[in-house]
């Protein structure tokens, strides 16, 4: 349990926080990130098309889904099998998406 939070310690914390938030370096980082993330990554999911080749490509997708229960994940998870060095656990860290 943290020690009881006093008004003075809250004032101090906010003082530091406001300084952090207003730091020009952080602002610049933010701008740079924005530049990098420009654009809209998520699509509108409603539309009125039929999938091209639905009767062929679509069928093959359906066909292999029949075996879903015996399939093995084969993506980047294969890289997660050998965890190595621990990260700086507990630190505040911010990530931005890369452009889609």
């Amino acid at each position: 349990m943290n020690k009881t939070i006093t008004a003075a310690s809250l004032a101090l914390a906010f003082g530091t926080a406001l300084t952090l938030a207003a730091t020009p370096v952080a602002a610049q980082d933010k701008m740079a990130d924005k530049e990098k993330c420009y654009g809209v990554a998520m699509k509108g999911k409603n539309d009125c098309k039929a999938g091209a080749g639905t009767s062929c490509a679509g069928t093959s997708k359906i066909d292999y889904q029949g075996n879903a229960w015996s399939m093995v994940p084969k993506g980047t998870c294969e890289k997660t099998a050998s965890p190595t060095s621990p990260t700086g656990h507990g630190q505040l860290k911010e990530f931005k998406e890369k452009k889609a």
Partner: peptide
Amino acid sequence: ALGEAAQTAAPFDLPATLGLLLR
């Protein structure tokens, strides 16, 4: 309220967290 919320079971960096929320 802030004073109540800041009394957490696990310790944490209050200034950094507030800074993050503001930023």
